[in-house]
């Protein structure tokens, strides 16, 4: 059986949590399956970043073309590494990188892919992937074929592994060039507020209905001593700036209170806020996925509740 390959991802602040989660799970599975773990990392300093990972082997691609993340270049390298190491499982965090590399690798190397994986369960030497689909309304239990598969893993699926390993380190270089070129990477505009630093977030979603209702959220946030954040649709509609967006393509937040108003709770959103200390969800649909993540929920109309709550908190 081939090893378990983890495609690692790093940001300015180091290896991402979702990478560490994959590493932890990979180690556990490798032990039962009697195989090894390999971590693949891209970019300058990859060796240094990965050398404490709890894996058996690290493969680092540090050449100049990896200076910034380039989906096509990384895919070329990954395709080659997979061809050479023939992993049983290839685990990739389901971020932009996962969406770039997972399906591309699957298509090019003709390896089945299981997307949006939130768990990998082992029984009698067989692995079943649990995949979150239909906006979290269903889970798909997918038996991993004997020849193995690629899984793209939702962040927050497992506890993060520890960085106590002493892997063998290998660097690779070659011609991974592509017709694709990254011109520049733009840092997010630091908006008027930094929602990642706020203790209290009043977060609004589609349920806000119209930008005319935003003052209700502002007033409530002010009364609570918090700030307003939002889900993707609100940003897409141009009602709030990108800097206020919580979720996969926005910010990851860990406030003391996350008051989710009119947010259905797509997996991409939950990914950005599930670690908040206290989550209260306001949504007229009791079945909404946000209720799975929330500690408290209510189905009253957010447009009625926000002013009522603001009044109480102001009145104090």
């Amino acid at each position: 059986m081939g090893p378990i390959l983890i495609v690692t991802e790093s940001t300015a602040s180091g290896i991402t949590d979702s990478t560490k989660e994959c590493v932890g799970k990979a180690k556990e599975l490798a032990k039962v399956l009697g195989t090894s773990t390999v971590a693949l990392g891209f970019g300058p300093g990859a060796v240094d970043r990965l050398r404490r990972l709890d894996v058996n082997k690290v493969i680092a691609a540090e050449d100049g073309e990896f200076a910034v993340y380039n989906p096509a270049v990384c895919e070329n390298a990954l395709v080659q590494v997979v061809a050479e190491t023939a992993p049983f499982l290839t685990m990739i965090p389901n971020t932009t990188m996962g969406l770039d590399l997972g399906a591309g690798l699957a298509g090019r190397n003709n390896i089945p892919l299981i997307a949006y994986c939130s768990d990998l369960q082992e029984q009698d030497g067989k692995i079943t992937a649990v995949s979150q689909v239909f906006a979290g309304k269903l889970l798909a239990r997918v038996p991993v074929p004997g020849d193995g598969a690629i899984v793209t893993v939702l962040p927050g699926s497992w506890p993060t592994g520890e960085e106590t390993g002493d892997p063998v380190v290998e660097t690779i270089s070659g011609d991974y060039s592509s017709r694709m070129r990254v011109i520049r990477v733009i840092e997010p505009e630091k908006g008027d507020v930094d929602i990642t630093k706020a203790d209290i977030l009043v977060s609004v979603g589609r349920g806000i209905e119209s930008p005319d209702n935003l003052p209700l959220a502002d007033e409530l946030a002010e009364a609570m001593g918090g700030v307003v954040s939002c889900s993707r649709p609100v940003v897409d509609a141009g009602w709030l700036p990108k800097a206020r967006q919580v979720g996969k393509s926005g910010q990851t937040v860990k406030p003391k209170l996350y008051l989710a108003c009119g947010i259905s709770g797509a997996p991409e959103h939950l990914q950005g806020m599930r670690d908040a200390d206290l989550i209260i969800a306001v949504n007229t649909d009791e079945e909404a996925s946000i209720m799975e993540a929330a500690h408290f929920g209510t189905t009253v109309d957010m447009l009625d509740l926000m002013p009522a709550l603001a009044e109480r908190l102001r009145g104090g």
Partner: peptide, 9 residues
């Protein structure tokens, strides 16, 4: 990318 990072490609 997550965190609001954007690449021009």
């Amino acid at each position: 990318y997550s965190g609001g990072l954007v690449a021009e490609i």
